[in-house]
Amino acid sequence: MKMKKFIAVLSIASMMAVAAVGCGSKDGEDAGTDKGSEGSWDAASAISVVSREEGSGTRGAFTELFGVVDEDDNDMTTLDAQTTNNTSVMMTTVSENEYAIGYISLGSLDESLVKAVKIDGAEATAENIENGSYKVSRPFNVAMKPDLDNPVATDFMAFIMSTEGQEVVSGEGYIPVAEVEAYAGTAPEGSCVVGGSSSVSPLMEKLIEAYKEVNPNASIELQTTDSTTGMTSAIEGSYDIGMASRELKDEEAAELEGTVIATDGIAVIVNKDNPTDDLSVDQVKSIYVGDVTTWDAV
């Protein structure tokens, strides 16, 4: 009896030892391959498809625009796709794995880590989204109750939808809303709570800082959660203004008044060692549906 236990422990420990040694030696290999990794590109390798979580604004826009849906608009992303709810995990995964493909908000794209591919020949830039040649984009929404009685919230909304506010939007790499007028607010005193989508949050942070310069009397609290919490909390009243990186659902739109404050592009990203520069909408679709599983078959 004791012997059996002992052997079990021993075998596990020796497995660990082998694993540890294996890891050590692979460390060395890695260092070697990193330098000459262009030569190691093997187009026959399986594609690692990385996707966002079901229900995310980014994923919703992506599947809709690339047609990764069936006749009834059901999401058909392959079940073999990795899922993450985090932009930086998406970028890190793609930058670490030569054969990965993913998609992220254009505002978060870091070109030193990953490469954004052209879609149907159009580069993922703010200009191309504005002139319509790059079609993969989604709205940033904010919503508040129509009968909300908070002068700071109303004034802050007016600021976002002014020339000054939209300058901040374009300065951060997002696409501003057309036709706005200069800010002519009253700079009221008081406080308000803004909260919701983590995708909108970085932009909102900049907007709040810019607003504080024109109205130092106001204090604005920013809660970074997610689109749904943003909308439900705005309905319940714990947020004055809710943020969502997707369209408002019907039941939310019944209680809230939504405003598009900016448009954000979605970039399709691959590893920097991937020779692919240009993909068509159909190619992206077939990768994400799971029809194509290796890079040489694209």
């Binding site: 985090n86 932009t87 930086s88 992220i104 908000s105 978060s108 983590s198 949050s201 970085p202």
Partner: peptide, 10 residues
Amino acid sequence: YNLSSEGLYM
């Protein structure tokens, strides 16, 4: 977690 989640402040 918040700094890292959008990949802007790694």
